[in-house]
Structures are given as C-alpha cells and as structure tokens.
Design a protein around this nucleic acid. Structure first.
Lengths: 187, 187
DNA sequence: CCTCTCATGTAAGACGTTACATGATTCA
DNA sequence: TGAATCATGTAACGTCTTACATGAGAGG
C-alpha cells in the first residue's frame, strides 16, 4: 500500500494535515500523480490507530479545526524498511486517450485528428505549468528536482510524439490502417 | 470501465479467447499495460450476458475447451460510442521505484545508488525486448506501431534520466539534500 | 523429470474514485 | 454576489490484484 508510505515520507519533512498532504503529493511527483481525500483521511486515521502517526488538533474559529499529523518512531521505522526494500512491479502508464489511440483505425480520420489536436493543446498547457513549477523547484533537493525533471521530459516527449503521429495520420490513406491483427511475436 | 472497451476493440480484429486477449493487450500497448485474468474472464461473462459478445465453445481433447468470443453489432455500437467520446482524465504514471525515489534523501546514498543501478539494468533489458518487438511491428497499422514507438521512447527517456540522476547523486554531498520541505507554488 | 506455455476460472481482499455533506474565508 | 480555495470527512461503488484450483502438451 503505497499511499501510506508516501504520507509517512512527507511527514518526515514536517507535520501536516490532510489537505496539504494531497497538494504536496501531487507536486512532489512532478504532477504525475493524483490522490484523493477518500484515500488520505481514512489512511491517516488507521495509521494513528496503529501508532505510526500522532494527531494534534489545532482548533480555529469557524472553519473545521486542522488536524496536524506527526510521524512517530514506529512510523519512521516502517517507512525506512519500505524505502530500502526493493520495489516490486514495473512502471504502469494508464491514459484514457492512449487507450483509444490504438483503436483509432476503427474510427473516422477526422474525429481522430480532432482528438489528437485536443491532446496536443492540453499537453502544451501542462508544459507551461510544469516549466513554471520547475523554476520554483530549483532549490529543492536532488530527488524532488529530478522527479520534476522527469515530469517535464515526459511531457515534452509525449508532445513531440503526438505531433509526429498527427502528421503521419494526416498523410495516411485508408490502406495504411490494416483492420486485421498481425501477430506480434508469439503464436 | 476501460478493460471492457479494450476487449471489444480487440474483438474487431478477430474472434479471440481470454488467454489471447491478455497477451495481445499487453503487446498492443507497447508493453505499458498489465491486465489479469481476474479482469478478463468476468468481463467476458458479463458482456455475453449483456449481448455485446457471443461465445462459441471449441472443445478439444483433454485441455480445457477454448471459448471463442465474437463481437455483436450491439458490442460494436458501444465501442464506437466510446471511441469518439472525449477521454476523461489525464495520464497517470504509477511506479513503485519512482515513488521511493522522491524520498531517497532520507535513505543512505549507497543503497540509493544500488537501487538506481538495478533500475538501469532492468530498463536496459526491457529496451532490448522492445526493440525486438518493434521490428516485428513494422507491418502493423499506424496506431499500433506508434504506440509501440511511444513505449520505446518512454523506455529510452527513462534510461537516460536514470543515468543522469545517478551521476548527480554520486557527485552530491549530503548538504545537497535538504530534509526540509520548501513549498513549491502554493501556500 | 521438470519447467514453461497453454487454457479457464473464482473468491477475497486491497485499492481507488466519485459523490455527497458542511461551512468559513478570500478575491474579483 | 458568486466563485475559488481552504478544510474535513464518509459511503457507495468500481476496479484491480493475488492467490488458488485444475490439467494437458511441449521441449530441454
């Protein structure tokens, strides 16, 4: 369960409450992660019960009181173990556009080009934001900065790939898109 | 639910049984996806009940009989609707190594370098395989080929990034790794 | 003989997302 | 005045993974 470990990791920097954990998480990961409150709050609760974190309630007039969480020695121990353990499993890229992309041969070329253009625009906007964040990240440590760098590189790579693909699609004739499955390596 | 649509997409090429669907899926997606039988078989069952696919049982001596699934017109309709709908949500990259990476500042440099080296080796091996597959993919349609291309580019990019990071880590002194969180953009 | 690939499936549990409810403050 | 941000949380639902069970054939 990686969310727990990520939370414990962030609490090494400083005490935090749920709302901030969410924000920091997304930014620490070069904006390649999403996480939601449905994961954070229940996890904090459970970890408190397990003695990995402690809660300090900071009452404020009106708005809900902030709940500041701190990591305990037990929490640090769990985190350290995880940090040095070797990571099981490989990289997974999940993308609703890319999933459609492989099947665009079964759709109309016009619609396909429209969707590709939308993606290009979207990644161009994101790229701007990532470059902005990168400037602010210059004074972070190596690891956080490198992670931001990776996010940037990924964004740039996909943009270029999209543009190249767009060109190839635009220039293609229908015959270029076989609707028969050619076996790749096996069978 | 994207698995269903992906299955329907593959059935456009030809009739298939569960085991093959799994293999093809992984290869169609530039080896960036994983999928398991716990998703495939129940989905095929449900889709048959819903009339999106039909089953033809091909008995064979001894081994379990193959269950060949074909897409129905209703299935094609559902798929087409999905294909032209605009994709909700953005790219997600989940990687157990990368998750640890951002926190390596809290671990030992030696162990960190060891883990990075392991990753480099692993991606080098994968790169070989991907290049192999790419050669075989030359006669696929644009979209499948481009997807394979993306897998390759991603692999190459990460490898370079890992090597650059490794260098920077090796050359770093402890002072380069702040253990205080500097706020990025907000707060 | 042993391991790998082919082939199907289920059950339990872990994990993640979405939608909802609540309400103050800040800024345009 | 209305939207965005800050802030906490839960319930229901969906999805995904893991582990198990079964068994034949091929190839080293």
């Amino acid at each position: 369960m990686s969310v727990r470990h990520a939370i414990l990791g962030l609490l090494h920097y400083q005490d935090m409450h749920g709302y901030r954990i969410k924000r920091h998480m997304e930014q620490h990961f070069g904006n390649m992660w999403s996480i939601n409150y449905g994961q954070i709050y229940p996890n904090l609760k459970k970890m408190e019960e397990e003695g990995l974190v402690t809660k300090k309630e900071v009452a404020r007039s009106g708005t809900p009181s902030r709940k500041l969480y701190s990591i305990t020695p037990a929490g640090k121990e769990v985190f350290s173990q995880w940090l040095v353990s070797d990571p099981q499993g490989t990289m997974l890229l999940r993308d609703p556009f890319l999933l459609r992309f492989v099947f665009f041969g079964f759709g109309s070329k016009d619609r396909t080009l429209g969707l590709v253009d939308e993606q290009i625009r979207s990644y161009e906007t994101q790229l701007e934001k990532r470059r902005e964040n990168m400037r602010r990240r210059q004074r972070q440590g190596i690891y956080v900065r490198q992670m931001g760098e990776l996010g940037l590189l990924l964004n740039e790579m996909i943009l270029e790939w999209l543009k190249r693909s767009r060109k190839e699609i635009a220039e293609s004739s229908d015959g270029d898109i076989p609707t028969e499955l050619m076996e790749l390596s096996l069978d």
